[in-house]
Amino acid sequence: MREHLQPAYVLHSRPYRDTSALVDLLSLQGGLQRVVWRGARSGRGVKPQPFVPLLVSWQGRGDLKTLQQAEVAGAHARLQGQALFSGMYLNELLVRLLSPGDAQTLLFAGYQSALERLALTPSSVEPVLREFEWQLIVLLGYGFSLTEDADQQPVLADTLYCWSPDMGLYPVVDAAQGGLPGRGLLAMAAQNWADPEALPIAKRLMRQVLAVHLGDRPLVSRQLFAPGRTGEPR
C-alpha cells in the first residue's frame, strides 16, 4: 500500500546494500516508520539528513517499507555543538521508545518545536530536553502526577519524594533514600526553570523514568555528553 506525501523527519540512517540506506522516519500520520531509501548514498536526489523537514511517501505492508518519494519541505533548524548533540539524543529516544506505525501527531509537533528551540537557544538546551522527555513519557501513556503523590495528596515543597513505576511519587522521610525535594517537583510541573532546584530534579527524575522503558542497553547519544563537556545536559 502506498501512502500519500506527509511531513516527516529522519531520525536515524545506516548504509544498506550498494547505494541505499535503512532509515527510521518520524512521520506525522504514520508515526515511526523504517524504510529502504534507494539511492540515499548516490550523488542525486534528496539525502536522508536529520532535522530537515521532509514530505515523504512510502510503499509496503510489512515492518520495512520502501520509500517512494522525498522532498525537502522548507528551511531547517541548523544545530551545532550542544544543540546538535541534544537533537541526536531526542532522535535516539524516539527510535528506542516509539512503536512502529503508532501515529503521534502531538509528539510530532513537540519534536518540531524542540528543534526550533534548540536552534534559537543553543546555550540553554536543558529546559528543551526536560520538557520533551516529559511530553514523550505522557504521550506514550507512562505519565504520572507531579503535583499529587500516590495517595492523591498534594506534593509539598518541604517533603522528599521517591518515584516508582507502579505508584508514581510517594513521600519518604529518610534523605538517604535519595528523595526528590517537593519544591523541585512543583517547579518542574510549572516549568519554572528559573527555580534552582527545577532542572536538577527534573534531570534525576527523567533519568529514572526513562531507564525503566529503555532497558539495559545504554543510549549512544549520552556518550556525547561526557563529563567535562561544556553545558553537559545529560
Score class of each variant (00 low, 15 high):
Leu93Thr: 09
Leu107Ser: 05
Ser124Asn: 08
Arg38Met: 07
Arg2Gly: 08
Gly45Tyr: 06
Gln49Cys: 13
Cys162Val: 04
Leu93Lys: 07
Arg78Glu: 15
Ala83Pro: 06
Pro233Trp: 01
Arg204Cys: 02
Thr66Cys: 09
Glu3Leu: 10
Ala194Val: 10
Val95Ile: 06
Ser113Thr: 06
Ser86Ala: 07
Val52Trp: 13
Asp24Gly: 05
Ser57Trp: 13
Asp63Ser: 14
Met167His: 08
Asp63Ala: 15
Gln80Ile: 03
Ser57Lys: 12
Val35Asp: 10
Ala176Cys: 04
His4Asn: 08
Ala21Arg: 12
Leu205Trp: 02
Ala21Leu: 07
Val173Ile: 14
Gly231Leu: 08
Arg61Gln: 15
His12Lys: 06
Gly87His: 10
Leu169Lys: 00
Thr121Arg: 11
Gly228Lys: 06
Arg229Val: 15
Ser123Gly: 07
Gly179Asn: 02
Pro100Val: 07
Ala226Val: 15
Arg96Ala: 12
Leu107Met: 02
Gln152Thr: 07
Gly179Lys: 04
Leu54Val: 02
Ala114Leu: 05
Pro15Ala: 02
Asp195Trp: 10
Gln177Ile: 03
Glu131Thr: 12
Ser42Asn: 07
Gln29Met: 12
Gln29Pro: 00
Ser86His: 05
Gly179Cys: 00
Ser27Leu: 01
Arg117Ile: 02
Pro53Lys: 03
Met188Ile: 08
Met88Leu: 14
Leu22Thr: 03
Lys47Ser: 09
Ala21Asn: 10
Ala114Tyr: 04
